[in-house]
Design a protein around this nucleic acid. Sequence first.
DNA 1: CTTGACTCCGTACCGAGGTACAGGGTGTAG
DNA 2: CTACACCCTGTACCTCGGTACGGAGTCAAG
Lengths: 150, 150
Amino acid sequence: MPAISIGQLAKAAGVGVETVRFYERKGLLDAPPRKGSGYRQYDDDAVERLKFIRRAQLVGFTLKEIQDLLALRDDPDARRADVRERAAAKVADIDEKVRDLLAMRASLTTLLATCEGDGPASDCPIITAFRDEGRNEPTERSCEHGAGED
Amino acid sequence: MPAISIGQLAKAAGVGVETVRFYERKGLLDAPPRKGSGYRQYDDDAVERLKFIRRAQLVGFTLKEIQDLLALRDDPDARRADVRERAAAKVADIDEKVRDLLAMRASLTTLLATCEGDGPASDCPIITAFRDEGRNEPTERSCEHGAGED
DNA sequence: CTTGACTCCGTACCGAGGTACAGGGTGTAG
DNA sequence: CTACACCCTGTACCTCGGTACGGAGTCAAG
């Protein structure tokens, strides 16, 4: 039984102790059991939850939206149509974000590829690419984005 | 020559007039030419730029980062290694965001698929999926996310 | 039993990203 | 020439997502 302190939790997830308490106040993390002294006691699930929150933030979800996302996961009534609908909406959100990111990525890689030699950037096709993003077709090829590049 | 007012620009990009001026102060949009009266005069490029800013924000870039992104595009010296390096860094950022999004997406679609019938969500494989995200392998299959779903 | 790191709670403060006046000028339709 | 919508500058204010105290209790090592 791995009961960890707030400091250990914070460290494990790469955030500050104050931030953990802040998330608790905001309802993103629920109040953990306490020791007799009043010290919070977390388990490893809390670490995962906290990491999830950070990742979701990175890609532009607000704390409110992240609460929704977590609620979807935690809701024991998740089978209901209402919840599925919200999940579907989040998927659509995510798709839009992915599409925007891939369009930006395509522009940047074009810049990288085309301007590898010399000459001014203004000659790059990227200018046009940026101007009109491929917002309507994720381009399939975009899947090239996969790991193995960083 | 399509010279539009700040109000028309704002409307075209779906933001408020105040926001446009705010971006100008922040250096995201450069100060446009003025009419004799002092009225700002924009062209269609400004609309694209403004839309780009909004999309970049949606996926979690800060205004500071967006400035960088735009500078990469606009820099007449973009051929230099330094700039390419920053572009590469942004691509890496984007890849991380995409990876996180696809992991979340996979979790949510699993929820949707598995819980389509009835039974409590706690039975769903999603629980485990969320718990341990496929952060290390973009899963290839994730490319299923492509258009044609929203 | 003292010391130092850690925890508690509460409140104050902070930067980012806007949003909303106030107090004025512009432009055009009637 | 009056109305009314729009624009100007400037400053004040707001929410979000934290971060930083202050003052006090806890706990493990020495």
